[in-house]
Amino acid sequence: MKKEWPLWEIFIRSKSGLNHKHVGSLHAADAEMALENARDLYTRRNEGVSIWVVESKHITASDPDDSDPLFEPARDKVYRHPTFYTVPDEVSHM
């Protein structure tokens, strides 16, 4: 009954005030071991102050082939950007 340790995705907060960011993955028997292994693998040089581990199978990703219809609705809404509006130079603080 050979069973491989599952794969975990690792997210590290590099310092307080910043988001956790995906750094890679590793194998571990459970979440606790995934945290310990992530400490040894991804923070050997003070790269982090906090670690999240998520078993890879729990991540749902968007399909790159659908990215056009998925992101298209945002593309024609230029009025959502401040540069869409003209404000005279003499008006400041805006």
């Binding site: 050979k2 491989e4 794969l7 890679g24 993955s25 590793l26 194998h27 040894d40 693998l41 050997r44």
Partner: peptide, 23 residues
């Protein structure tokens, strides 16, 4: 030497993103 182990693991996990199986 510990770094080399780490490098191996970064790379195995990159290979796994292509559908390779670690074992």
């Amino acid at each position: 030497v510990q770094d080399e182990a780490g490098h191996g693991l970064y790379l195995y996990s990159a290979a796994e993103t292509l559908g390779a199986d670690r074992d």
